[in-house]
Simulated assay, not measured.
Amino acid sequence: MDSTPAVLRHAVGALLKWREPAVRAVSRLIPADVLWYVDTGEPVFALTFDDGPGPETTPGLLEVLGRHAAKATFFLIGERVRAHPELVAAITAAGHEIANHLMRDERSALIPDARFRRDLAEVTELLAPYGPVKWFRPGSGVFTPRMLRSAAEQDLRAVLGTLVAANRDGPADARIAPDLAVGVRPGSIVVLHEGTPRRRGVVETTDELLGILSRRGLSAVTVSDLVTR
């Protein structure tokens, strides 16, 4: 039984409900070509996963997505693409989209410009045999103008999101879906994290999140599909 006081639950729910509109409002004040959300009246949102692929998470996610007839965009790390090319092939074979999350799980804003350019190009080259690559997401979600310029020169556009799951790399990750679902609305871009053994809970999170949103009439699509709405 939930022992959280009703007043506190109501306050948390209200905060989560307004988190997504607040991010949309702030993003409109930032003078940069970054995709945070899409204005659409259609009942769809983009589901994205960072930091894969990983054998402990990706196969489970593909099973859950298939069962819900949902599509997603996987922002993949180059080192893990090299280690698990069969998982990248499985992602695209299932009709999902792949995107660039640079070479390592690190803060992109701290990478020297020359290495950022090199890593970005290298990951796109690794992914190209599996499908088109149009998007990138900086590590830790922090970008600089020079990063955006470098990406644009490589025909890549930055994608962040309106809702980022509070993954803590532990069992509690399997219990965050209801709070996350509160803020999802048409045109949202949801960010979840996978790719490591401690993030196994993302599979259950995704299953529960898709179930909740389906009952509200919302369907998960890729980023590329969302921008065409």
Results as ranks from 00 to 15, higher is better:
Ser3Gly: 07
Ser3Arg: 10
Ser3Cys: 08
Ser3Asn: 10
Leu8Pro: 06
Gly13Asp: 12
Leu15Glu: 12
Ala25Cys: 13
Arg28Phe: 00
Ala32His: 12
Asp33Val: 07
Val38Cys: 10
Pro43Cys: 14
Phe45Asn: 03
Phe45Val: 00
Phe49Gln: 00
Asp50Thr: 03
Gly52Ala: 08
Pro55Gln: 08
Leu62Lys: 11
Leu65Asn: 11
Ala70Gly: 04
Leu76Ser: 02
Gly78Phe: 02
Ala83Gly: 08
Pro85Val: 10
Pro85Ser: 09
Leu87Ser: 05
Ile98Phe: 09
Ala99Lys: 02
His101Gln: 05
His101Arg: 01
Ser108Lys: 03
Ser108Pro: 07
Asp113Pro: 02
Arg115Gly: 04
Asp119Pro: 05
Glu125Gly: 13
Ala128Trp: 06
Gly131Asn: 03
Pro132Phe: 09
Phe136Arg: 00
Gly141Trp: 08
Gln154Trp: 05
Asp155Phe: 10
Ala158Asp: 01
Leu160Ser: 03
Gly161Glu: 10
Val164Arg: 12
Arg168Pro: 01
Pro171Asn: 09
Val184Pro: 09
Val190Ala: 00
His193Lys: 00
Thr196Pro: 02
Asp207Gly: 08
Gly211Arg: 14
Arg215Asp: 15
Arg215Phe: 05
Val221Ile: 10
Val223Ser: 01
Val223Arg: 01
Ser224Pro: 09
Val227Gly: 07
